[in-house]
């Protein structure tokens, strides 16, 4: 099979590393060759961060380039728009509608664009947008946005529910497991 590409984008500190760990585990368990590329260091300090997850029979490059992503999973609306050029012509965006002002917007040097979901759709992109922060809080913690997004993403994958649950159990610390299972279910059913 052709290599499939998932990008996880957001703001440093939002929890994308756990999401990529979960996907990595899930896809490896399915027997795929997998590569996951992460960002550490300075960019993590509130900057724009991206994680690449690639899987298939044999994966070479650890990164995803413009026009190659089958899925972009985004924790924040502006970040979805920032990485839009990485989406394949028929790719799918799954994004939280949360908005976090970057420093140039905070200082007034730039404006946060309005109507991003509609504008992204106008380019022909398939955009699934939902308020993951509200769902995460309903599950019990605003930190569970990452797992709400994974629940939502699971919609688009032809994988049995048990496979996702197994990976959740393997990757999430025990004391947060129930909370994250609720978050996953809320994302999936939303």
């Amino acid at each position: 099979m052709e290599t499939k590409n998932i990008m996880i984008v957001g703001v440093g500190g939002q929890g994308s590393l756990l999401a990529s760990k979960l996907l990595g585990h899930l896809l490896m368990e399915q027997g795929y060759d997998v590569k996951v590329s992460e960002v550490h260091g300075m960019s993590q300090r509130g900057g724009s961060v991206v994680t690449y997850v690639r899987y298939g029979e044999k994966v070479h490059s650890p990164v995803i380039d413009e026009g190659e992503a089958d899925y972009i999973v985004s924790f924040e609306l502006l970040e979805a728009a920032r990485w839009l050029s990485y989406l394949k012509p028929d790719g799918q965006i799954v994004t939280s509608t949360q908005q976090i002002d970057p420093m140039p917007v905070i200082t007034g040097a730039a404006a946060y664009p309005e109507g991003l979901v509609e504008k992204m759709r106008a380019t022909g992109a398939k955009v699934d947008a939902l308020d993951c922060l509200a769902l995460a809080e309903r599950a019990g913690s605003s930190k569970a946005v990452n797992i709400v997004l994974m629940g939502r993403l699971s919609h688009y994958f032809d994988l049995p529910e048990e496979a996702w649950q197994r990976s959740l159990e393997a990757m999430v610390p025990r004391k947060f497991l129930e909370l994250n299972k609720r978050a996953f279910a809320l994302g999936k059913e939303a």
Binding site: V11, G46, L84, S85, M103, A111, P113, L116
Partner: peptide, 19 residues
């Protein structure tokens, strides 16, 4: 070469900041 698409609006950069 794979090509992507973009919206017309300028996307403000998000540089790292002190927490």
């Amino acid at each position: 070469v794979h090509k992507g698409r973009a919206i017309e609006d300028a996307i403000p950069p998000r540089p790292p900041v002190m927490c």
